[in-house]
Write a protein that binds this DNA or RNA. Sequence first.
DNA 1: CATGAATTTTGACATATATCAAACCGGTCA
DNA 2: TGACCGGTTTGATATATGTCAAAATTCATG
Lengths: 256, 256
Amino acid sequence: MKTHSLLTSAHFPKVSDMQQSVSHFRLKAVCSNCKLRELCLPVGLSIGEMRRMDDISHLKRGYARGDYLYRSGDRFQSLYAIRSGSFKTQVLHEDGREQVTGFQMTGEIIGLDAICTDHHTCDAVAMESSEVCELPFNKLEALSRELPSLQRHLHKIMSREIVRDQGIMLLLGSMRAEERLAAFLLNLSQRLAARGLSPTQFQLRMSRQEIGSYLGLKLETVSRAFSNFQDNGLISVKARAVELLDLPGLRTLVGK
Amino acid sequence: MKTHSLLTSAHFPKVSDMQQSVSHFRLKAVCSNCKLRELCLPVGLSIGEMRRMDDISHLKRGYARGDYLYRSGDRFQSLYAIRSGSFKTQVLHEDGREQVTGFQMTGEIIGLDAICTDHHTCDAVAMESSEVCELPFNKLEALSRELPSLQRHLHKIMSREIVRDQGIMLLLGSMRAEERLAAFLLNLSQRLAARGLSPTQFQLRMSRQEIGSYLGLKLETVSRAFSNFQDNGLISVKARAVELLDLPGLRTLVGK
DNA sequence: CATGAATTTTGACATATATCAAACCGGTCA
DNA sequence: TGACCGGTTTGATATATGTCAAAATTCATG
């Protein structure tokens, strides 16, 4: 369960349809006995360095839809790189309110929130059959002391998460419902494109309810916005199958 | 301009009245020729290690209200530890919309957003006369490769920022106006208390407009919420002078 | 201390989104 | 095949917050 966990996985197999951060820090890299690979973590590392990276990681398979990768309050041990499938993260309020804070897909890293308290502060739930690479954080830190490029990369991943969150704050704080949904769809599109998939046709993995939670809206509002987009010829939507018909139009909506 | 920048500064001088993260990673530490100090960065470091930390930092004085510490798009060089005074950070949307993403006070670190792109993604603006310690990031990384406790601390600071942002997302996505304001005031109170200041009486450094931007509300809504709180005996407020009269009542409002 | 500018408060009204409810799917399981 | 069941769409209405405007207050400046 630990062979070449980070080094295998060609071109993002089984790609899911929702995504999150604008870019994702993966690079192509040639590895001794493997074909050209795309990786999520090691950037600018030599073959040997990559192998060391690989040595500390463990592949974990068999997460089914609804399975928890970790729960809020769990003791922090590792970061997780999504190797296939997709997850959502959600925070829970004392009074029962919950909010989806992100949808993560192949190649993205989750668990960063737990570093500061040694305990996870959100839940991570699989949205489909998924695999992850477990990256024990102590070992990751130790290795990054030896490999400056890994160190920098780790810092960039954390910083990127901060920037992503700022973008969501802007969205939640100052955009109207349709602008939020347009921004969501465009972000999705961009992340799909980055993975070599169709940026205009995809299958949503999450419900209207979950989208609404993420965007700070009720599910009915999300549904209505979808319908309006369709009426205006911006998209075609039927349940979770979405086609973006007018990307420039969507961009105009979010004001860029 | 670089002597003992991080090591001086006793007990948070000139404390400002707005704040941000729940805790702030400063510790008391004894240093050779200094009195007991409170520091923002070095945790669990020996005297010698602290001195090395100090050696790479530069004290920068003389930021007046409205001065920019950095602007969105500026090249990234350094993180900044606020030594006195306070700042706000804001992101700007292409179409002119802007949103305050945080109010930072003494002991807090800003600039983390810039690591991932090598350019700052938000503005940092002084809200009063302020001083900062500039921490050149390359040197900080190099030093943290040598000092595991510094490395861990840096990771925690970044993680904490991620958690903070998640909390704001929850606030913006699922709380009503008065709940948001109550959460804001309680957070303020908590951070003041952590600095040994009155958790119930303080002077706001930011306008209703800025609070509104931070909370995703219009300034009139913020003003009305303040007035309602006062009418209900939760607080006493006159312009920017605030007194929290009923902390439990405020906590009930935010649902905890 | 006086004046004007900026900020804050308050009011009346408009509107976006939430709420409640029902109908409509599309798949799953007897 | 038919009945269920979660998810989605759509409609009617309620409500929180935004908008516009004016008055009140505070703050800065000469």
